[in-house]
Nucleic acid binder design. Structure first.
Length: 725
DNA sequence: GGGTTAGGGT
C-alpha cells in the first residue's frame, strides 16, 4: 500500500514488478564479462590505453529508483497525484505507450516534443499501433503543418505550439492531461512550459501532468511540481516519481588510462583499434565541429581504402577477427539532407559503418545499429553574455548527463561498448549537467511572450532553474528600447502585443511592425523571412565549384548596402521567376533551374516563401497593417533608403562603428569583426554598420547579415537610444 | 586588412 510520504512507491501487487534479483538489481546488469578490456599494443601511435571498464547502469538504477510495470501504475499514480515524473531511457515506451493509457481512460492528451520530426513520427507510430487513421483520434500539430481535429484524443505537438495555444486558452481547458516529453534537454521552451504548467496546475486541480525525462534528476522535478507548502510537515506531495525500464542491452564503459592530448587523433586511432580487434558492429564517434569531423574523416577514409584493398587478399585481421571492409560517413547539421540520410542506409554485409558526428546524434538523429560509441568528452556550447549581447560558441567539456546519453546510443540493438577518450578521474570531475538553456541564452523573445500571457513580473516567475537576474534585466532593457514594454515593464498596446504574436526575435518583429510607416511592408516581410533560414547559398567542399559559386554570388547579388539588401534582391528575383509562369509544375522546374544556375538552395528559398506567407497573413490580415503612401517618385535609391531605415528601426540596438584598429565596436563595447561570409567583407570598411546576428568563436566575434548605415539615421530613428556626441 | 557556422523552434 502507498505510504503517505513515499520516498519510493511500494505497490502491493508483487507481480507487477519485472523480474528482479533478490538484491533488487536488474538481471541483465549482473555477470560483467571479465576479459573484454581493450588493450593497445606497444607500437600504437598514441599512447592510449583503456584500463577500466564497468557497466553503465540503467538510469533508474543510477538514481536509485524502483522499476515498475507500467499501465496500472501510471493510471494508479495519476489518480492519486497531480503530477507524475516519469524517468526512463528513450525506447521504453514513455512517449508512445503512456499517452495511450491515458487516452483509454478518457483523457484528452497533449504530448509535447522539442522537435517537429519527433512529434510527427510519434503521431504516425501511435496511430499505426492503434490501427487508426492519422489525424483522427491521434493527431499532431508541429510548425506550420497540422493533422488533427478538435476531437483528437492524443495530439503530439512541438512545445512552441502548446505555448501558442495558451494565448487562446490560458488554462488549456481543451486538454485534461499534458505530457511534457524529453524534459532532460531543458530547452528554453521546456523550462517556460514547466513554469506555466505549474501555474495552471494550481488553478486546475483536475489537470494531470506527466513530465518525462531520460536522465534529469527526478527529485528536482518532483520538488518543482509539488504544490504542497513545504512548511506543512504533514502535507502530502502532489507529485510522484515513477521509472520505466528502457534499454534492454547493457553497455560496457571504457576510460582512457591517461589524459588524451588530441581527441581527433585518438578518435581515429580508436576507430581503427575497434575495427581490427572487436567483433562486427557499427561505430558512432562524437566530435565537436564540422572541421574536426572533416579532418578525422580524411584520415579514416585513407585507412578505409587501404583496409578494403588489403581485404581482397586476406580473410582475417592479425588479431584473428574476420576482416571486414569499412565505410566512413560524416554527420552534422549543415550537411545537405541527402547526405544526412546516408547514416540510415544499411551498407553491404561485412562492411562496418563508421559515423563521425557532432552532438546532433545525441538528441535529434538516431543512428541505427550502433554497437560502439567513441566519446571525445567535448561539445560546442553556446553562451550568451547579457552585458554585451553576444552569443559565443566554444568547445566545452560535456556533462555527466551528456556522457550517459552518448553511451546510451550504443546499446539499442545489442550489447554495446562505449570508449571515453578521457580518464575516469576526469569523468568524475564533470558537472552533472549543463546549465539549462534558459540560463545561458537571450531571453528577450521568451519574456515578451510571457508578458503577452499576462505574466508581468517575470522576475518573480517560478522557473525550474531561475536565470541570472542580469539576463532578465538585459532582456527587459532591449524590449524597452524597442518599445515593446513601457517604463514599468507592461506590454505596450501599439507594439508589444503584435511583436509577441510574431514568430520572430523581437528586433526582427519590431522591424516588421514599423514597416507600414516606412511604406515597405512587402520588402520587410521578405527580409524577415530570409533572416529565418540558413544557407541560402549552396555550399561546396572547396574546389572549382566553390569558386564558381562565389563568383556567381559576387557578380549577381552582392551589393554595397550589405547582406540584408542582397537577400531582398535574391527573394525578389526568385519571386519574379516563380510568378512568371502560371503552370505550377513548370514554375517549379524553372525555379529549380534558376537556383542551380545561381548556386542558390531551392529548398531553402521555398522554406522562406512559406515563412513569408505565414508572416504576411499575420501582418496584413490579423494586424491589418497598411503601407503609408509616399508622394512623388518612389523608386530606386529613395525607396531603398526607406527600406534600410525600416530595417534599422528594429535592429538599431545592434549597430557598430569602425574603430581605429580596423575592427568594429558594438554599442555596448563588444569588439566585432565582419564575418568572412558577409558582402561587406571584401569591400572598403563602412564607418557604421548594423547586423542581424552575431556569434563569437574562440577568439573572434563575427557580425552576420549586415547592412551599412548612416550615423545620422540612428539619431533620426532611435533618438531615445542614441545621443549626439 | 581580415578568413566562418553545436543543435533546436514559434
Amino acid at each position: 500500500m502507498l505510504k503517505t510520504k513515499p520516498q519510493f512507491i511500494r505497490p502491493g501487487d508483487e507481480t507487477l514488478y519485472p523480474s528482479r534479483n533478490k538484491d533488487g538489481t536488474i538481471d541483465t546488469l549482473l555477470n560483467p564479462s571479465t576479459d573484454s578490456a581493450l588493450t593497445i599494443d606497444s607500437d600504437s601511435k598514441t599512447n592510449f590505453v583503456y584500463n577500466r571498464y564497468h557497466h553503465l547502469p540503467y538510469e533508474a538504477q543510477r538514481q536509485k529508483l524502483p522499476v515498475f510495470q507500467y499501465r496500472n501504475h501510471v493510471l494508479y499514480l495519476l489518480e492519486k497525484y497531480q503530477t507524475l515524473i516519469l524517468i526512463g531511457e528513450t525506447g521504453c515506451g514513455k512517449s508512445t505507450q503512456v499517452p495511450q493509457y491515458l487516452h483509454e481512460i478518457g483523457h484528452k492528451v497533449c504530448v509535447t516534443q522539442p522537435r517537429v520530426t519527433a512529434a510527427v513520427m510519434l503521431a504516425c507510430r501511435v496511430a499505426e499501433e492503434r490501427g487508426e487513421i492519422l489525424g483522427d483520434q491521434v493527431g499532431y500539430a508541429a510548425g506550420m503543418t497540422a493533422m488533427r481535429t478538435p476531437e483528437s484524443g492524443i495530439v503530439f505537438m512541438t512545445e512552441g505550439v502548446l505555448l501558442r495555444e495558451m494565448f487562446a486558452s490560458p488554462l488549456l481547458m481543451q486538454y485534461s492531461c499534458i505530457v511534457l516529453d524529453e524534459v532532460h534537454e531543458r530547452t528554453q521552451m521546456t523550462d517556460v512550459l514547466m513554469g506555466l504548467l505549474k501555474k495552471i496546475a494550481k488553478k486546475r486541480k483536475n489537470l494531470k501532468i506527466v513530465v518525462s525525462s531520460a536522465t534529469m534528476d527526478a527529485e528536482f522535478l518532483k520538488d518543482f511540481f509539488n504544490l504542497t507548502d513545504k512548511r506543512e510537515t504533514a502535507g502530502v506531495s502532489t507529485s510522484v516519481i515513477m521509472s520505466m525500464q528502457g534499454r534492454t542491452y547493457p553497455i560496457e564503459l571504457f576510460y582512457s588510462q591517461e589524459p588524451v592530448p588530441d581527441y581527433v587523433k585518438a578518435t581515429v586511432d580508436t576507430v581503427v583499434k575497434i575495427h581490427e580487434n572487436e567483433p562486427f558492429g557499427d561505430i558512432l564517434a562524437f566530435l565537436t565541429s564540422q572541421e574536426e569531423i572533416q579532418s578525422a574523416l580524411e584520415t579514416l577514409q585513407m585507412y578505409a581504402e587501404q583496409n578494403n584493398d588489403k581485404n581482397m587478399h586476406r580473410k582475417y585481421f592479425p588479431s584473428g577477427f574476420q576482416a571486414s571492409n569499412m565505410l566512413v560517413v560524416a554527420m552534422y547539421g549543415s550537411l545537405p539532407h541527402y547526405r544526412q540520410i546516408k547514416v540510415h542506409q544499411s551498407c553491404d554485409k561485412n562492411v562496418r559503418k563508421v559515423v563521425v558526428s557532432t552532438n546532433i546524434s545525441e538528441t535529434s538523429i538516431t543512428v541505427p545499429g550502433v554497437v560502439y560509441v567513441i566519446d571525445c568528452g567535448f561539445h560546442k556550447l553556446p553562451y550568451f553574455d547579457p552585458a554585451v549581447g553576444v552569443e559565443s560558441l566554444s568547445v566545452t567539456a560535456i556533462s555527466k548527463n551528456n556522457a550517459i546519453q552518448r553511451a546510451g546510443r550504443a546499446g539499442r540493438t545489442s550489447r554495446g561498448k562505449c570508449y571515453r577518450l578521457y580518464t575516469e578521474e576526469e569523468y568524475d570531475k564533470l558537472p552533472p549537467s549543463v546549465p539549462p538553456e534558459m540560463c545561458r541564452s537571450d531571453l528577450s523573445s521568451m519574456i515578451l511572450q510571457l508578458k503577452a500571457l499576462g505574466i508581468n513580473n517575470v522576475l518573480r516567475f517560478t522557473f525550474p532553474t531561475p536565470p541570472p537576474a542580469k539576463c532578465l534585466l538585459s532582456a527587459l532593457e532591449t524590449l524597452y528600447a524597442l518599445k515593446g514594454v513601457d517604463r514599468v515593464g507592461n506590454l505596450t498596446q501599439d507594439f508589444g502585443t503584435n511583436m509577441a504574436e510574431l514568430p520572430l526575435k523581437p528586433m526582427c518583429a519590431k522591424m516588421l511592425c514599423n514597416s507600414g510607416e516606412f511604406g515597405c511592408i512587402d520588402e520587410a516581410l521578405s527580409i524577415a523571412a530570409l533572416l529565418q533560414v540558413d544557407g541560402v547559398f549552396s555550399k561546396f567542399n572547396g574546389g572549382r565549384e566553390n569558386i564558381a559559386a562565389k563568383m556567381s554570388r559576387r557578380n549577381n547579388f552582392e551589393v554595397a548596402e550589405g547582406d540584408i539588401i542582397m537577400y531582398l534582391n535574391i527573394y525578389d528575383s526568385y519571386m519574379k521567376i516563380k510568378k512568371s509562369l502560371t503552370d505550377e509544375r513548370r514554375a517549379m522546374k524553372t525555379c529549380k533551374e534558376w537556383c542551380q544556375k545561381m548556386y542558390i538552395n531551392y529548398k531553402v528559398m521555398e522554406k522562406a516563401c512559406e515563412i513569408r506567407n505565414g508572416l504576411e497573413k499575420l501582418v496584413k490580415g490579423k494586424f491589418g497593417m497598411e503601407n503609408q503612401v509616399y508622394e512623388g517618385a518612389d523608386l530606386g535609391t529613395a525607396k531603398c533608403e526607406r527600406i534600410m531605415k525600416c530595417v534599422l528601426s528594429g535592429f538599431f540596438p545592434q549597430a557598430a562603428y569602425l574603430s581605429v584598429d580596423s575592427s568594429y565596436r558594438g554599442i555596448r563595447g563588444a569588439k566585432l569583426h565582419i564575418s568572412p561570409d558577409s558582402c561587406l567583407f571584401a569591400t572598403q570598411q563602412p564607418k557604421w554598420v548594423m547586423f542581424a546576428s552575431v556569434q563569437s568563436t574562440d577568439d573572434k566575434t563575427y557580425m552576420r547579415e549586415m547592412m551599412t548605415i548612416q550615423k545620422e539615421w540612428l539619431l533620426e530613428i532611435a533618438p531615445h537610444y542614441y545621443k549626439e556626441t
